[in-house]
Design a binder for these strands. Structure first.
Lengths: 66, 66
DNA sequence: ACCAAATGTAAATTATAAAAGACAATTTGT
DNA sequence: ACAAATTGTCTTTTATAATTTACATTTGGT
């Protein structure tokens, strides 16, 4: 699964640490999700989408292996 | 987090077992997600949404405790 | 170049999603 | 009412998400 968190952060101009704070997880959790190392829960995906005023589907997308 | 999987299944008229088959998980996984006992991964949420030709946000919604 | 902020990564631990199997309870059709 | 299909729930086990701490690397500003 791929995601556009980096782009969304750039648009809102916030750091990984700030995003982590906004959705109440550790900075490392944001970092590893952003770099595709692991898949967040749906609750976390919904919270991230809410921060960026968009949909989960607009941030996360399935790819071949999934 | 709440969801509308039961409704979506009714619309498409498919069983939990059939949905499980379509997204490649066990029937129990669908059952426990549908009854709110646990939160699926974002990959699974995307797959479920795809089965119902809709968005993750249209099926899963945050609530107070989340 | 220098400093500071931001990002990347690694190891260990904890929490929880997901699987499998089995059986109980409920619903649906005839 | 009966039988079959569907759904609910339990236990055990496995896989992986998430936390914490700590440190390395990179990026941006002056």
């Amino acid at each position: 699964m791929k995601n556009t968190i980096r782009v969304q952060r750039a648009i809102k101009n916030i750091t990984q640490a700030e995003l982590a704070d906004l959705v109440q997880v550790s900075r490392q959790t944001i970092n590893t999700i952003e770099s595709g190392k692991y898949v967040p829960s749906t609750v976390l995906a919904l919270k991230i989408a809410r921060v960026f005023d968009t949909s989960v589907d607009n941030i996360f997308e399935l790819e071949e292996g999934d």
